[in-house]
Amino acid sequence: MSIGHTLLALLESGPRHGYDLKRAFDARFGHDRPLHYGQVYATMSRLLKNGLVEVDGIEHGDGPERKRYAITDAGITDVGRWLAEPEKPEPYLQSVLYTKVVVALLTGRDADSLLDAQRTEHLRLMRELTRRKVSGDLADQLICDHALFHLEADLRWLEITAARLDQLAETVRP
C-alpha cells in the first residue's frame, strides 16, 4: 500500500500536522497496522523534497517544533495519477484496493471508473493465465488455477464494492 499517496490524499481537505495525519490515517486505514511516527515523518520529508507538499506553518510549543503540511498542485496531480493507474493484479491486493476506493470517495474522484479499470486489468491477466493453462501441462494448469481462483476472489470483491459504492460514500464523506 502506498502510504505516501494516502497521506497526500488526506491533505486534500486542508493542511494538517504530522500528528493529525497519523491519527486520520489510523482511523480510516490503520485497522490492523497503525503507522509509526517515524514512518509519517520520513514520508513527509520525502514528499516535501519532491515538491508534493509544502510547509504551511510551524508551531513552536513546549515540545519539538511541529510542521503543518499543505498539498501542492503537483501533489494533487500525483494522487489522481495513482488512483487512475490500476494495480498490478496479484493475490492479497484487498487492502490497497480498499484504500484507493476510500481515497477516491474522500477526495471526490470517480471511484466507479477506478473499479472498472481494475476489473479490466484483472480479467486481462485471467485471460492470459487461461491461455497458458489450456496449452500447458498439469503443473501449469495447477499453478495457473491457483492464481486464477485468487484473482476471481478479488474480482468478486470489486463487483460487490461497485454495487455498494453509494453506501460506502455515505460513511466516508465528512
Binding site: D116, A117, R119, L123, M126, V134
Partner: peptide, 29 residues
C-alpha cells in the same frame, strides 16, 4: 457471470442498465 469462464474469451463486454460497454479501452485514459 463467472470471471473464470469469461477468461476463455478474447474480449469482454459489460452490460449495465441496458447498455453494453466494451472494456478493451477502459483504464487507458
Amino acid at each position: 457471470h463467472e470471471a473464470r469462464v469469461a477468461a476463455y474469451a478474447d474480449r469482454e463486454v459489460v452490460v449495465r442498465d441496458g447498455r453494453a460497454r466494451d472494456m478493451a479501452g477502459v483504464g487507458l485514459s
